[in-house]
Design a protein around this nucleic acid. Sequence first.
DNA 1: ACCTGAACACCGTTCAAGT
DNA 2: ACCTGAACACCGTTCAAGT
Lengths: 184, 184
Amino acid sequence: MVLNRTQVVDGACAMLDEQGLGGLSMRRLAQDLGVKPGALYYHVASKQDLLVEIAGRILEGRPISTVDARRAAHDIRDALLRVRDGAEVVSFALAFRPDALPGFRELHGLFAARHRSREAGWAARTLVRYVLGFVAEEQNYAELVGTTILDDVPARAEETDDAFRFGVEALVRGLDAVAEQEDT
Amino acid sequence: MVLNRTQVVDGACAMLDEQGLGGLSMRRLAQDLGVKPGALYYHVASKQDLLVEIAGRILEGRPISTVDARRAAHDIRDALLRVRDGAEVVSFALAFRPDALPGFRELHGLFAARHRSREAGWAARTLVRYVLGFVAEEQNYAELVGTTILDDVPARAEETDDAFRFGVEALVRGLDAVAEQEDT
DNA sequence: ACCTGAACACCGTTCAAGT
DNA sequence: ACCTGAACACCGTTCAAGT
């Protein structure tokens, strides 16, 4: 079927967006691509490998600011929200292969001006964790609304945006504040 | 075999701590309890139901402060660290049934003095997310060190504690700071 | 009330063999 | 080089039937 790695990842991204992470299986993906399950392993080492690749695609979708922490947080959120279960996929990839995510190592620089090197790394990771956790919850809730008979509260979207901004603001301000006494 | 719900949850907790979340299956649990898989479903509605129950047990292990946000964060971390993959299990439970976790709804009160009601809820959820995200990463890393040939950096534990304190301090300070201008 | 037997509908992964 | 066939070792869940 002259399949290649790019097509496998493309198909996986499409399937993720349509079925969600729970509906993305190697067997289904193979069938979707008109191929037997074993064939996928000629192009991809494992499902985990595939998920890391998908995570990369998700993050490449939107450029992430490297100068403003607040903007960076919103950029990452926007990227994650473009794909169903995006936050969960990226979280997995980050846990499994922390170095392989594009645009995440550079976030260290967001705090390099105010913080010492070690603390800048902590700060960047803290911000990323906040965004991932927030969006994972957000997307998970959306999933539950879609599946279960959970009555959707109207005007939830704007309140969610407000809640996100609230957390970003608190976190960035707090990170700035603790930077000032890093001279023990 | 005169099994009851408590014994099923007990067995599941033990298996979680020994095998990790990936090694906890209904079939293995059944075999461990000397019973056929189908028997478990007489005591537990589903695996998800079981995980929510386990999450409750994990959080009940340590009392969580309701007066000091910094202490509460450390209390929650301590509770999560007592069980392998504790953070992942509690995260799942929180996503799946946000109301069924003991001691989490009360955290709202930690911020009620400084914040308006809506913002106090946001603040509490932000703090919980931080702790869960941090400990999930922490436990996941420990897992990778145990499995893969990943050379463990010495003195990592103390640095991890420092990193956690750093984030808690920043977050709590930031949350306090944004509280002061909640008069739009 | 509590459990077994047995099935249903799935998984990820491997690997000899084919082309 | 790329894929199939076919297996291996699993999953969660259901449900008639047994005791």
